[in-house]
Amino acid sequence: MESNKNFVVGIFDDEDILLHAVENIREKGLKIHEVYSPFPVHGLDDALGYKRSRLPIAAFMFGATGTSLALLMQIWMLGYDWPMIIGGKNHASLPPFIPVTFELTVLLAAFGMVGTFFIASDMKPYKWPRQFDLRSTDDKHVMAVDLAANKMSKDEISTLLKSSGASEVNEKNF
């Protein structure tokens, strides 16, 4: 973590006020570092201008890998490596391979996507997140503005946050 980063932190009590505040603040040209909420606020990612997550694509790729691996494994094992006649059917007949193929598709898609989520969000059991305000997991929405990334002064930012509906404005240094 970089040292000596100064943030102005706005505390919001209500998700609707927060959403309007984000739009208002971004219109005024202030760059928001991040907003921390106790629960998902719908429309907040759009208001902050975040692009849609590409995790669905990752899930699809992992799922497709699962499908191919499962089919290849079963066809190779029962069709080529040790062919056996079971119930007079072909060595490598497709229909009985579908259940296992489906399960492995789901398994790889789910685990691959969740693993990607942890990597993309940089989440690890031994890592403590940067906490601007401990109430952000309780009942407050916390907006952090990086002073170094903005041209406005500390006081101007505080006034803007207050006028947008923040119930409190604090400072936080890391």
Binding site: S37, P40, V41, Y50, M113, V114, S121, T137
Partner: peptide, 16 residues
């Protein structure tokens, strides 16, 4: 896992 509750994390979390 060091959850931070950031809007970006929530957005990913919701799609997961």
């Amino acid at each position: 896992f060091g959850w931070d509750g950031a809007a970006r994390t929530w957005s990913r979390y919701e799609s997961v």
